[in-house]
């Protein structure tokens, strides 16, 4: 084996590492939190941006917030407050549901959902 052969190995490995880094860096982006009320899409918030939006429904309001790749409900005037107490969601397929307002926040992204569902 010549030294130039080793150079080829190094080039190929660097290219592989570069492409891999490029994809893994881009993997978390492109996720969006989609807010639906009674099945109707009301807002789409990119997860990597800090944003707050008030969702008005005929039964009350929810304030959905996105920050650092996570989405959560900061405030709502529903009676049970389950959506506000819900943990922050960040993975494809995760949802926050506010039953009294028929509001659903779901994380949408490329590819398959990491989990089938979250219970509990």
């Amino acid at each position: 084996m010549k030294k130039t052969d080793l150079l080829l190995v190094v080039i190929a490995l660097i290219a592989a590492a570069g492409i891999w880094l490029f994809y893994s860096a881009g993997a978390d982006h492109g996720l969006t939190a989609v807010v639906t009320v009674d099945g109707e899409v009301r807002a789409e918030l990119p997860l990597d941006e800090t944003d707050s939006i008030e969702i008005e429904t005929e039964w009350g309001y929810n304030i959905v917030h996105t920050e650092d790749g996570q989405a959560f409900v900061t405030e709502a005037d529903c009676r049970d407050q389950i959506c506000v107490d819900h943990k922050k969601i960040e993975k494809v397929g995760e949802t926050i549901v506010c039953l009294p307002h028929k509001m659903v926040v779901e994380i949408i992204g490329e590819g398959e959902a990491e989990m089938d569902m979250v219970v509990g």
């Binding site: 490995l13 592989a16 590492a17 492409i19 994809y23």
Partner: peptide
């Protein structure tokens, strides 16, 4: 173009 996701693995296996 997302097929290129396989490239790093295939480059290493090619080496």
């Amino acid at each position: 173009v997302k097929m290129a996701y396989y490239l790093p693995f295939l480059l290493v296996s090619g080496v």
